[in-house]
Write a protein that binds this DNA or RNA. Structure first.
Lengths: 194, 194
DNA sequence: TTGTTTTTTTGACAAATGTCAAGCGTAAAA
DNA sequence: TTTTACGCTTGACATTTGTCAAAAAAACAA
């Protein structure tokens, strides 16, 4: 950027500041720490088995996170939509190799920040701890909702729940991704849709 | 407590300080904010529909958290074992009525702290933000593991996974609680166990 | 202890979902 | 355009899991 702020970083800052205004000094630390990357459909952000010591934010595009079942089948663990944060949580938290692959399913722009820089900001500016706290709690609620869905709904109900929860995804991702996300087979999903 | 620290609060503090030593001032704020309660099998800590503005810690005993399916059936959303934190996450985070009932399945002793006091400590002592952050992240990893289990395992595999993940629970909770936790029926679980 | 209630197991059967294979349609590649 | 590859649908059938009812076992209370 010759002069002025990278618009993608600007966008991320605005997204954080929906609930709280960040002090100028925090913003400056963030701006210095964030990297912006443009990615194309099919690109891989994090490969299973590699280290994921970054936290990401999706500016625009669409991302899928998946892992492999014992028999080799891919299982979608989540979809990431615009303005959402993502990472391999387990790898990021425990400093272990990623158990998942993060892949681009529509051309995307992502921001990333290294774990050490992220923690450095929190340490220096506790308000950023608060912000982080809010986001991870929101994520916990989402995870609990998904457990409820998987625990107690039939295949048909799962699909209806998916349409209601992720209305923007239904015509953007292939059915096999949705099927494994819901814990059902492609054929069952195909039949349900009629 | 006539003099000296309540041993249950002492126990909670030690449990927190496995990874980090809390400053004396934080400990004192905690000690003032924590309430200790003894509960008996069958008691209800939080009833579905009521407000849950507390964070809990289980000193000893065993707790089950469940919700009701549309048809009225109870579905176990989690078991809480000794030295674990618990609450109704959604209610606690969003300040909405609890979607779950928290019930005692073995005589228990719990510590509780009100959300406002909890946040007051974090605000005054950012190190406590860090501690909280750690626990929430650990919880996120557990939730993701459960999603994986529900998404991609058969009934038999789910049961084996349960035995491996919660070895201490297998002979302490009734099968119907485990069955709904795994998203299968009592009869199926009963047959699998043979 | 005895009697009562609740939980677990079992059987017969029904329904849902999975598997495998083939065909169709669409979109990308040559 | 033609060809190829991939994703989606469909059918026939297998398997798993669910449902309902009853019996057995275990837990609890009198």
């Amino acid at each position: 950027m010759p002069n002025g702020l990278n618009p993608h970083i600007q966008h991320l800052l605005e997204s954080i500041q929906v609930s709280i205004i960040l002090p100028q000094e925090v913003k400056e630390m963030l701006i210095k720490s964030i990297e912006v990357r443009e990615l194309k459909k099919g690109d891989i952000v994090i490969e299973e088995g590699t280290h994921c010591n970054e936290l990401f934010f999706l500016n625009y595009g669409l991302i899928r996170i998946f892992y492999y079942r014992d028999n080799g089948d891919e299982v979608t663990s989540s979809f990431v939509q615009e303005n959402e944060f993502f990472t391999n949580v387990k790898g990021f938290v425990n400093e272990t190799p990623s158990s998942e692959t993060i892949s681009i399913i529509e051309n995307s722009c992502i921001c990333s920040i290294k774990k050490e820089k992220y923690f450095a900001i929190m340490q220096k500016h506790p308000i950023f701890f608060y912000v982080s706290h809010q986001f991870i709690n929101k994520h916990r609620v989402e995870l609990e909702d998904r457990i409820k869905m998987l625990q107690s709904l039939t295949a048909k109900e799962k699909y209806n729940n998916f349409k209601a929860t992720y209305p923007k995804l239904i015509n953007r991702v292939q059915l096999s991704y949705i099927a494994s996300f819901l814990g059902i087979t492609n054929e069952t999903l195909s039949r349900i849709r009629k």
